[in-house]
């Protein structure tokens, strides 16, 4: 009896990955569809940037704003003030306290583009766009939340960013962890009302 259960379990575990793969793909598509159904978002974030050369992670916080199909804005208010706004193929970077303002094509900064496309593609629910830049691995957690691991396809980008891990629940994106250069940046996102 015990052995039979064992055999059954074994058989199930053999079958499971295939069944799961199709299921996860289906779940991924559902999540993407849910994300795509929200054309406008506003949220606050906190961030912890861990860099191997530093003793302590560097904290920061601010707000995020999304407007489908391609506008994304990240405003940091602590401890520095900084604004990044992406619209279409161009990025505007501002540091008002330093009088810095730059506007450039995302294509010119592949590392930056990788990060932008990861978040933008996810918020837009555009799986095809994500898969243009990344290998996408998706998994549903036991608590119903999801976890998506993006691995850059470009070797050059992988030199700076090895992995981007997005987590969320339903149509909410809750976390973005960016791993690269031996460090990791953890962003936690809370939807603003």
């Amino acid at each position: 009896m015990r052995t039979r259960r064992r055999v059954l379990l074994l058989a199930a575990s053999c079958l499971l990955p295939r069944a799961t793969h199709a299921q996860e793909e289906e779940a991924l598509r559902r999540t993407m569809a849910a994300l795509a159904a929200t054309p406008q978002r506003q949220a606050s974030f906190t961030e912890q940037k861990a860099i191997p050369e530093l003793d302590l992670p560097l904290p920061s916080e601010g707000t995020l704003r999304w407007q489908a199909p391609d506008r994304l804005e990240k405003v940091t208010i602590f401890p520095i003030t900084e604004r990044i706004a992406v619209a279409g193929g161009r990025l505007t970077y501002e540091r008002p306290d330093r009088g810095i303002q730059r506007n450039f094509a995302l294509q010119e900064e592949p590392e930056m583009q990788a990060l932008v496309e990861a978040i933008r593609g996810t918020l837009a629910g555009d799986l095809a766009a994500l898969r243009r830049h990344y290998d996408v691995a998706y998994a549903t957690q036991r608590d119903g939340s999801w976890r998506m691991v993006l691995t850059p396809l470009s070797l050059r980008v992988r030199g700076a960013v090895q992995r981007i891990v997005l987590t969320g629940l339903g149509a909410e994106v809750r976390g973005v962890d960016t791993e690269g250069n031996g460090g990791v940046t953890r962003m936690r996102i809370t939807s603003a009302p």
């Binding site: 940037k49 050369e53 560097l58 990240k74 401890p79 900084e82 970077y93």
Partner: peptide
């Protein structure tokens, strides 16, 4: 450098800054 590492340009600075 520390200030730059806090900013969005940190990947670039982490690559060359040290």
């Amino acid at each position: 450098l520390l200030d730059g590492l806090r900013s969005a340009a940190s990947p670039l600075l982490a690559r060359f800054g040290f």
